[in-house]
Every structure is written in C-alpha cells, then in structure tokens.
Design a binder for these strands. Structure first.
Lengths: 144, 144
DNA sequence: TTCAGTGCAAAGCGTTTGCAGGGTG
DNA sequence: CACCCTGCAAACGCTTTGCACTGAA
C-alpha cells in the first residue's frame, strides 16, 4: 500500500484514538478523495473496482470513523443518500439544482452574511454541511 | 367535516386539477397545520388520534399532492424523515441545532445576501427548503 | 496475544408500488 | 357510473446491527 500525505494523516489520527490502520480504511479514504463528491454506494463501487470483496457495512462504518477523525465530511445533496467529500479540499457550500441535479461549489464567503446574522443569536453555522437547493441558470433559462 | 378557509382553498385547488376532495386529504392538511413542523409519521399519528384506520401510504401520497398544490412544503431538518409545514404561515428559513435538535425559524431576509449572490450566477434559491445546521447558543455555551 | 475491524446475513426504518375494492363528483 | 382515491401488503433503497472470524499492533 502506497504512502501519501493523507495516508500519514490517517495513520496518525487513528493511532491517537487507539484505532487501527487497515487496507479498507485507506482505500475508502482514497476513494472519497478521488470521487470528490460521492455517496456510500459510489464509494463502495469505486473501492470494489480496485479490490474485490469489500463490504457495504464496512464502508458505512469507515465513513463514520473518517468523519469523526475530521478527514471527510458529508452533506445532503439529494433526498436519498448523503454525499461525502474529503476535508483536504477547501471548505465549500453546495448549490444543487433540483431540476438537473447539478452541484455547484461556492466559496463560504457567499454565506458569510448569514453566518454573521445567526451568530448574533449565538447560533454557529456548520458551513460545510450547507446545501442550498434551487434552480440553476440553464434550467431556469429553458423555461418551465 | 367543518369548513375553514384553508379547506376552501383545498377544495378549489383540487377541483382545478380534476382531483377529489376526501376526508383524508382534509384531515392530513389540518394535521400539518396543527403540528406546524411534522414528519409523515407524526402526521399519521395525529390523524389517527382523530380517526382510526388511515394508512401510511395515503399520508405519503397526500403530502405529495398537497405539496404539488402548493398548500404544504417540506424541508430536511434531520438525517431521517422530511418535515412538512403549511404554506399558510410565512415562508421561513430553518436553523437546526445538531446537538439538541431544536429548530428555529428565521425570516427569509436573513439569507437575502446569499440569494442575491447566487442570483448573479443565474441560480434561483429555494428559500423555503433551506435548512441551516449548526449549534445553538445554549448548546454552545454549555461547552463541548 | 489481544481486541479492533471485517464480512455476512438479517433486521430496521422510511418510503413506494400494485392491486382490488370503495366513494367522490 | 366513471375513475380517482384508499387500504393493504409486499417490495424497495439505504443503513444499522449481531455475531463469529480475522488480522493489526
């Protein structure tokens, strides 16, 4: 198994928690990074394309661990499965077109006014989790 | 069955679409209004507390119809079931504390800057669907 | 050698669907 | 009296869980 910066990070954080470094955990983290935005199912498929026989429950359990370690994050970009992405990328806000399903990423600065407004109330917004639904330019232009 | 303004609205809109006014549809719409924010399951329980034997599938099908008619809306305030609310109330944005689960409603004005920013991109935000996750003042003050 | 991690299978939860009977318009 | 709507039951998609075995440290 090759060593990458992210892998070192994984190994370190796992050790801190008394957890173990396994091939599955490395592969699943790599899959999330490669796919950029992926559901557990897509992660499973990606991992299986490299190594046979990885179980779905392992993917779910691993994504949970990786999220606790702060290496991945998830957001709900559809009514169905959640979407995971690596925290190596910059934090971003998702805008999802409900008509065509396209996901656009925006800089967190876009929602800063909202964050500030709610902060006045003592509410701390989890920007990375934010999903904004609506209709994109292409779909809107096409008319209804 | 009593007649209310909302019920008249329901009857009218159903007729426009060639659909039928049934006791179930009236009860389910009323339940959503009474509960303010409710999952399909909670709506079902509420309706059943008044009339026995209403089926879950009827609730799902009816909520879908009511949403198409523009009488109710839904947002995803948890990782599980969606939450429905009546459109009689003013449109509002939801802020959900991930720690205690409390849902706070905010005026859409709070997110206007975001709406404007994305509008510059041709993206039309569905404000009513928006759910902002984070941590509320009480939970934040308590420390981690 | 220990105990965290895995695969497997079954169950869980929320939701959808096919069908036949029932009630609205 | 046509046909929309309902209840029922089964199936569905995604996720979680219990258990015994495996393998990392």
């Amino acid at each position: 198994m090759k060593t990458t910066p992210m892998n070192d990070d994984l190994a370190t954080r796992l050790k801190e928690q008394g957890l173990r470094l396994t091939p599955q955990r490395q592969l699943i983290l790599r899959a999330v990074e490669d796919l950029r935005h992926a559901t557990p199912d897509e992660v499973l498929a990606h991992v299986r394309s490299q190594v046979s026989s990885v179980n779905a429950s392992t993917v779910y359990r691993t994504l949970e661990v990786l999220e606790e370690l702060g290496l991945v994050r998830h957001a709900h970009l559809s009514d169905r499965a959640p979407t995971y992405h690596s925290t190596v990328e910059h934090e971003h806000v998702h805008a999802v077109c409900r008509r065509c399903g396209t996901v656009r990423s925006y800089d967190p600065a876009v929602v800063q006014p909202v964050v500030d407004a709610l902060a006045a109330d003592g509410f701390v917004v989890d920007v990375g989790h934010l999903a904004i639904f609506g209709e994109c330019a292409e779909c809107g232009a096409t008319g209804t």
